[in-house]
C-alpha cells in the first residue's frame, strides 16, 4: 500500500490512495479508492478501453487481462492487490496486433459485434502459452468462461486451433 507523501499536506478529509501499477510494461500512477476494480482503472483512469465491461462479477470473461501471464477477470481484481504485478491488456498483447492469436482471429474473421473478442483473445493467448497443443475438448473447456452473445463460438474454436498451429 503506497499512500501519497502529499497526504500530510492534504486538507481533504479522505485523501485517495495512490497506486503504482505496471501496465503493458509501463509504470503508471493512479489515484483511486482501494476497492476500485482493475477493469475501471484501465478504462476510466488510464484510458485503455480495450478491456470490456460485461458482468462485473467475473462470470462472462469480457474483461479478461493477464496478471503475470495468467488470464484473470479484471472486474474481480482490486487495484490495491496488484502492485508489483505485470498487467497485460489487449492493447499490450503485441505492439501491432501481430500476436499469433490476433492473427488467427483475423484469418478466421471471428468477430460479429466484436465486443467480447478482446477478452476471448486474452483467454486464448494465456491458455495456449501453457498448452500449445490442446485437444478440442481442452479448448472448449478453456474458453467456456468467455460468453459471446453473437455466438461466434465455432469461429473462436477454429481460431484457437489456427493460433495453436502458428505457435507450435
Amino acid at each position: 500500500m503506497h499512500f501519497s507523501t502529499s497526504l500530510l499536506f492534504n486538507l481533504k478529509p479522505f485523501p485517495m490512495p495512490i497506486f503504482q501499477l505496471k501496465i503493458n510494461g509501463k509504470s503508471q500512477t493512479v489515484e483511486a479508492d482501494r476497492d476500485t476494480p482493475l477493469l475501471w482503472i484501465l478504462r476510466d483512469h488510464v484510458d485503455l478501453v480495450g478491456t470490456k465491461y460485461g458482468c462485473g462479477i467475473g462470470v462472462c470473461g469480457a474483461c479478461t487481462v493477464h496478471i503475470d501471464g495468467i488470464a484473470n477477470e479484471s472486474c474481480r481484481l482490486q487495484v490495491s492487490q496488484l502492485q508489483g504485478m505485470e498487467i497485460t491488456t489487449i492493447e499490450g498483447l503485441s505492439e501491432y496486433g501481430t500476436h499469433p492469436v490476433q492473427e488467427a482471429w483475423k484469418e478466421i474473421d471471428v468477430p460479429q459485434c466484436g465486443y467480447c473478442q478482446a477478452g476471448q483473445i486474452m483467454t486464448a493467448s494465456a491458455f495456449l502459452k501453457n498448452n500449445p497443443n490442446p485437444t478440442d475438448s481442452q479448448i472448449r473447456n478453456a474458453m467456456h468462461g468467455n460468453i459471446c452473445r453473437c455466438a461466434s463460438y465455432n469461429s473462436i474454436e477454429n481460431a484457437v486451433k489456427v493460433a495453436a498451429e502458428k505457435l507450435s
Binding site: V49, K52, K106
Partner: peptide
Amino acid sequence: QGISNVDIDEIITGKPLFGLDYK
C-alpha cells in the same frame, strides 16, 4: 468473396469503437 470485417484490426487490438469506450 469472403471479405474480412472492416473493423477487424481495431477489434483485435482493443481500439475504442463502442459506445462504452466514448469519452
